[in-house]
Amino acid sequence: MSFGTSTDEETETGTGYPLRRVVLYITLVAMGAFYLIPIETGVMTSLTSPGSYTGQFPYLPPLEPLLSGTGEFSLQPWQTAVDLLGQGLVNSVILVVPATILSGLLGSMAAYGLTTVSWRGQIAIYITFVAGIFIPYQAVLVPLTQFWYNVVPLRTAFQPVAYWVPFIQNYHWKLVALIVTHTAYGLPICTLLFRAHYKKLSDEMIEAARLDGASIYRIYRRIILPLSVPMFAVVFIYQFTQIWNDLLFALTIVQFGDASVVTQELVGLGVSQSGTNFPLRMAGALVAALPTLLVYVLFGEKFAKGVAA
């Protein structure tokens, strides 16, 4: 199609290259470079020898090979980063996947119950959901610690589970607490997003399903849920990024230890008394950012549909 239009313009104007097109491409290339340079800089830095790091522009390929004397470049900082962040990455995945799915699923169910099904008092309930969006994180930090450490005996309750179920460790209780916290905190915004989507669904269609004999649950399962797929992509991407990148709740609830998530591990990576190892930190940051990138690629197409809807 683009070929067709360009030939059209050429024949119209009679000159070889239409100026507008040239300007457009130059602008696009410049913008592309502008957005990609920080990432490129990161990649280059992660390959630079810590010793020669300060001596050059960060976005240029390293002058000094990482393994000095051999003339070879190496992915050593990346290996080190993966090794050191390994536990954190695993913990983050254990946290993020259930928390994202739960907040999306519960948000969708809540929105269905508050929008498509009509009952007395639902507006009041909905308003409390919306109010949840405006509670600042900082305000709940202390109560949250109190809640998980002193009010709910999750730690002791979790011990037999860890004992009997393989792969489950004692410290995982902190991740469970974090999953519940993130699910609860993500619920209002998820509900809001799904509600906006469900309001646009035809009432007559739901009524037709009711007349067809479907129960409230079956309508959700067979009509609403399949029609929510684009919105799920939006919510999943949003929640995944939010929870993956969160540091505040992790510091509050996990605090330290084996249950630390990747953002916590990243804080201390490559920091020592002898100085900061920037290539290692940069490699660590890129490793930690990779999963969110992956989620964008996986859900990107559906995401675009959901945003456009």
């Binding site: 035809s202 007559e204 269609m205 009524e207 037709a208 399903a209 009711r210 007349l211 067809d212 004999g213 479907a214 129960s215 009509i223 399949p226 029609l227």
Partner: peptide, 20 residues
Amino acid sequence: KPPAERDIAMVFQSYALYPH
């Protein structure tokens, strides 16, 4: 009786077909 138990079928103005 709830609609499901009435054994009545209805055709709507917008057809109300399930799009998926």
